[in-house]
Simulated assay, not measured.
Amino acid sequence: MALGDKIRKLGSDAVSAGNPVAVLFGKVTRTNPLEVNVDQRLTLEEDFLILTESLLRYEADLTHYHLSGGGATQDALTDKLVIRPGLQTGDTVLLLRVQGGQKYVVWDKVVTS
Rank of each mutant, 00 (worst) to 15 (best):
Q102G: 04
A60F: 06
T52H: 01
V15L: 13
G69Y: 15
G11C: 12
G4R: 14
R30I: 00
V105Y: 02
T73S: 10
K80M: 10
V106A: 03
K6G: 05
E59C: 05
T63D: 05
V36P: 06
W107H: 12
K109W: 03
T43M: 13
W107G: 08
K80C: 11
V105M: 06
L24R: 10
D13N: 14
E59Q: 09
S68H: 01
K80A: 12
A14N: 07
G100C: 03
L55A: 04
L49V: 00
W107F: 13
S54T: 14
R84P: 11
S12Q: 12
Q74N: 01
L24S: 05
V15D: 04
A60E: 04
L51F: 02
Y58P: 01
T78D: 03
R97E: 13
E59P: 02
L3D: 06
K9E: 11
L67Y: 12
L44G: 06
L44A: 08
L56K: 07
T31Q: 01
V98C: 12
V28T: 00
M1N: 09
V93E: 03
Q102D: 10
N37I: 15
H64N: 10
R30V: 00
R97G: 08
V28A: 02
H66R: 08
L81D: 04
G26D: 06
L95N: 01
F48K: 15
Q74H: 05
L95D: 03
L49R: 07
D75G: 00
N19I: 09
